[in-house]
């Protein structure tokens, strides 16, 4: 029992936080909050940045940072959407359109992999601090996609593609939600049962020691960036589908939101720690807050941002009082 408490202490704290949030909206907005539409909205909204957060999680556990994932994903989706829009003609049947869409998706994922390789090379081969390297790349991707689109929104996507973001099963389960669940399970499996997952935590904890133990640390870092950028791009492909368009700077606020969720979940970029279950709980809590705030007609959506920020600060302050393992610790390891 004591072991469980120690191992999952932080998870319980996050569950408690979620309970408080739900209780708050239940009391203040009793009628409006417990409606099917509200919960459908929650399920429809968080998958796109949820998938991105799961990707960034790999970078964080590895002790690295990726500021470029959103701009890279925007560039990738802009290229994908341009390909789809330019190649789909009204005469095409659904099968042919599907083919074009698949090629478009592959283009986007290919670009994500290339971007990830560049990030990993800057960090591992040239030893540039990850924040600096990826901020630079962020600007590079933004610059390229703005130049290509002249800052315009790329529209004209076929219905077959925009349906991805809007399709629901049984009238309550959105397709993006299913995608998120599948990706979540894959990520959970990677962390728990693969050799890469085992190496990931060790490299994140002490890259040098891992290297001295015969681990190919470059490969581990590269894999982490690829997972991060590919998942970010998948998230962006979903986002583009819901918006029915692509743009060079869509989703810029997702960068800070993903970082906030991870830190709140106890996955800090110092590396070597974090549980995926905590990320899931935090993700849902954050979305409940965003949706709940919208129920107050006199508050605008930016209040959600205020609450998230305040929550993060409170959790960080609380965590300085808790020194047990598994709790956020910003202390430098090794001493």
């Amino acid at each position: 029992m004591k072991d469980i408490k120690k191992k999952y202490g932080y998870t319980f704290m996050l569950l408690g936080l979620a309970a408080i949030v739900i209780l708050f909206f239940t009391i203040t907005k009793a009628g409006a909050f417990w409606k099917a539409d509200v919960w459908k909205g929650i399920m429809a909204q968080f998958p796109e940045y949820g998938i991105m957060t799961l990707g960034l999680m790999f970078c964080f556990i590895c002790g690295k940072m990726d500021m470029s994932f959103m701009m890279l994903a925007d560039f990738a989706t802009v290229m994908a959407v341009r390909h789809i829009v330019q190649n789909v003609t009204p005469e095409m049947d659904n099968g042919a359109v599907g083919g074009v869409i698949i090629v478009g998706i592959l283009i986007a994922l290919g670009i994500a992999v290339v971007g990830a390789i560049i990030n990993a090379m800057l960090v591992t081969q040239l030893n540039i601090p990850p924040v600096m390297a990826t901020i630079s790349m962020q600007m590079v991707w933004l610059g390229i996609s703005t130049a290509i689109t002249r800052g315009d929104t790329v529209t004209g996507l076929p219905v077959l593609y925009t349906e991805i973001g809007h399709k629901t099963f049984f009238n309550w389960l959105p397709l993006p939600m299913i995608l998120f669940i599948v990706i979540f399970l894959i990520c959970w499996f990677i962390l728990k049962y693969t050799v890469y997952g085992e190496k990931l935590y060790m490299v994140g904890s002490n890259e040098k020691a891992a290297k001295f133990s015969g681990i190919n640390t470059t490969a581990v870092v590269l894999t982490s960036y690829i997972l991060c950028d590919v998942l970010a791009t998948i998230g962006a492909l979903v986002m583009v589908s819901t918006m029915a368009s692509a743009k060079a700077d869509y989703g810029t606020s997702y960068v800070t939101r993903c970082i906030l969720i991870l830190v709140l979940a106890g996955v800090v970029p110092n590396g070597g720690m974090g549980k995926i279950i905590n990320v899931l709980i935090t993700l849902i809590t954050i979305q409940i807050i965003a949706t709940g705030v919208n129920l107050f007609s006199n508050l605008n959506t930016y209040y959600a941002s205020l609450i998230w920020g305040a929550l993060l600060v409170i959790v960080l302050i609380l965590s300085t009082f808790m020194t047990d393992e598994g709790v956020i610790s910003f202390k430098k390891r090794g001493k």
């Binding site: 050799v195 190496k199 935590y201 060790m202 904890s205 002490n206 020691a209 891992a210 133990s213």
Partner: peptide, 22 residues
């Protein structure tokens, strides 16, 4: 030992088996 030998914040067992994962 501290900077090159160990992942201090990781379990003893995982440290011992770090070179034997294959």
């Amino acid at each position: 030992r501290l900077t090159e030998g160990l992942c201090l914040a990781q379990p003893i067992a995982d440290n011992i088996e770090l070179s034997s994962l294959k």
